[in-house]
């Protein structure tokens, strides 16, 4: 690499600093302005319970083991605290009834599984 000559300037960054002082902030003031999520954002898993056939492929593909499918009881449940939003279940689903939706899950005071009832038709 070529020899670089030192750039001896007083307050070399002052221009940029002054510019920043009068510029609009680079961040958004979030609670007052809504956050914008891109289309592909992986926030949380959503299930369309009517379409689910309870095959259990999502349960087997889930790396942290957050999803549980119980065919006997007709329950599809997810532990949101274990979920790492990897989209593995969505890719495994043969009926495309799972999808990744934008927006993060809300904080909770207790760890709980979220349960959905599936396979209602067969029961009738």
């Amino acid at each position: 690499m070529e020899e670089v000559k030192p750039d001896v300037r007083a307050l070399a960054f002052a221009r940029q600093a002054l510019k920043n002082l009068f510029m609009k902030p680079a961040t958004t003031s979030y609670p007052f302005e809504p956050a914008s999520y891109p289309e592909r954002m992986r926030g949380h898993v959503e299930l369309v319970a009517e379409d689910c056939i309870g095959c259990g492929l999502c349960m087997r593909s889930c790396p942290p083991g957050a999803i549980r499918v119980d065919r006997q009881e007709g329950i599809w449940s997810i532990n949101r605290f274990d979920c790492v939003q990897c989209e593995s279940c969505v890719n495994a689903c043969p009926k495309k009834c799972l999808k990744m939706a934008a927006g993060y899950t809300q904080p909770e005071t207790e760890k709980a599984e979220e349960r959905f009832e599936i396979l209602k038709k067969q029961e009738k």
Binding site: P38, E39, R40, M41, R42, Q85, C86, E87, S88, N91, M100
Partner: peptide, 20 residues
Amino acid sequence: DRTTGGRIIFSVNCVGGVLK
């Protein structure tokens, strides 16, 4: 965020190619 859906960990690789 726009291309993969994640900001830091974006899980786009899979054995045999990419997912997105």
